[in-house]
């Protein structure tokens, strides 16, 4: 079995409202797959269907080889999940939360204790293991949830907005854990996020979801190609007629009103050395270089006419509001 998740025409309605409008995708074993989309896109709804917590209205989903409707127990045995909203017992300690999880997943004795110790150390919470969770910061709670989700060694791990509302250092930390999990355990990871950088940094493939529909899917590179080429901006010391450089890797050239030259290339990072050589050959001096690569935000903008980011970690107010919602 090389496909960890297969979803076909999945539909989920809440009453009359269609939150997921027929999505289809496949996730290969050992892959990190990201659902990138704005608030209300249907990410969490999809995750809850895939983790057997909601019944789909129509369509089919197979996770870790088992149908989520036909064999929910078989699916539950093979998955782990970090929910978007907190799901810890705040009155209990980190250790007790881990212990309860281990027990209801059928682990016990020394095996359980060893795994708990290893994971609590992995997420750097070992020294806080006997503190009640209600005294933990948001980032600590998130790390504990990640450790807990790994305790029973799931084949497929679902992470619903794993870094929402966290500060940049903590986010980077959590990204490290996620990468380590993939590398060490060849775990399949289904991630949802509305942070473009997160999808880009972590995911092998990304599906962009909006209003319950997948509007584009592919690697980050492939998605960016949807918008167009990279653009290199040059400030040159050269006669006007020589400014538009010719070269096989150059897709287009325009002299901007401010005198700068805009070159379209497929991949700016790879094109730059060639460009310097070319300029050298022609005796043109390059005074300044900048380049713009399309971002996933450009992709989203291109496909929907809207920005994906209504908030970001750099916008503390938005995160603050969000955290308060999380703690509701």
């Amino acid at each position: 079995m090389s496909e960890a998740i297969v979803v076909e025409n999945l539909v989920k309605k809440y009453g009359d409202f269609e939150a997921v409008k027929g999505v289809s995708f496949k996730v290969k074993q050992g892959e990190i797959f990201a659902f990138l989309g704005p608030n209300g896109a249907g990410k969490t709804t999809t995750v809850h269907v895939l983790t057997t917590l909601l019944r789909p209205t129509a369509g089919r989903a197979v996770v870790a080889g088992h149908d989520v409707v036909e064999e929910p127990m078989e699916v539950r045995k093979r998955i782990g999940i970090v929910f978007q909203d907190p799901s810890l017992d705040r009155e209990l300690t980190a250790w007790e939360n881990m212990y309860i999880h281990g027990r209801i997943y059928g682990l016990k004795g020394n095996e359980l204790r060893e795994k708990m110790e290893r994971l609590l150390k992995f997420v750097e919470l070992w020294e806080f293991k006997d503190k009640p969770v209600k005294t933990f910061s948001g980032g600590m709670q998130r790390r504990l949830e990640i450790a807990r989700s790994l305790l029973h060694e799931p084949e497929v791990l679902f992470l619903d907005e794993p870094t929402i509302g966290l500060d940049p250092q903590t986010r980077a930390h959590i990204w490290d854990y996620i990468r380590a999990m993939k590398e060490e355990h060849n775990m399949t990871i289904f991630l949802t996020t509305h942070y473009m950088d997160e999808a880009e940094m972590l995911a092998d493939r990304i599906a962009i979801i909006d209003h319950g529909k997948i509007i584009a899917e592919g690697t980050a590179e492939e998605l960016k190609k949807l918008v167009g080429n990279d653009v290199i901006y040059l400030k040159l010391e050269a006669p006007e007629e020589l400014k538009c450089l010719q070269g096989e890797f150059i897709r287009g050239c325009k002299v901007l009103p401010d005198g700068r030259v805009a070159l379209e290339v497929e991949n700016a990072a790879e094109a730059l050395p060639g460009l310097f050589e070319l300029a050298n050959e022609r005796g043109i001096r390059i005074l300044e270089v900048t380049y713009h690569r399309p971002t996933l935000n450009d992709v989203f903008l291109h496909l929907t006419g809207r920005e994906i980011r209504d908030e970001s970690p750099e916008n503390p107010m938005a995160s603050f509001v969000r955290m308060r919602m999380r703690r509701r």
């Binding site: 998955i79 907190p86 799901s87 997943y105």
Partner: peptide
């Protein structure tokens, strides 16, 4: 409300 219910419902127990 505090979400622990989801942890129980998603478990294979």
């Amino acid at each position: 409300q505090f979400g622990f219910l989801k942890e129980v419902l998603v478990a294979p127990a």
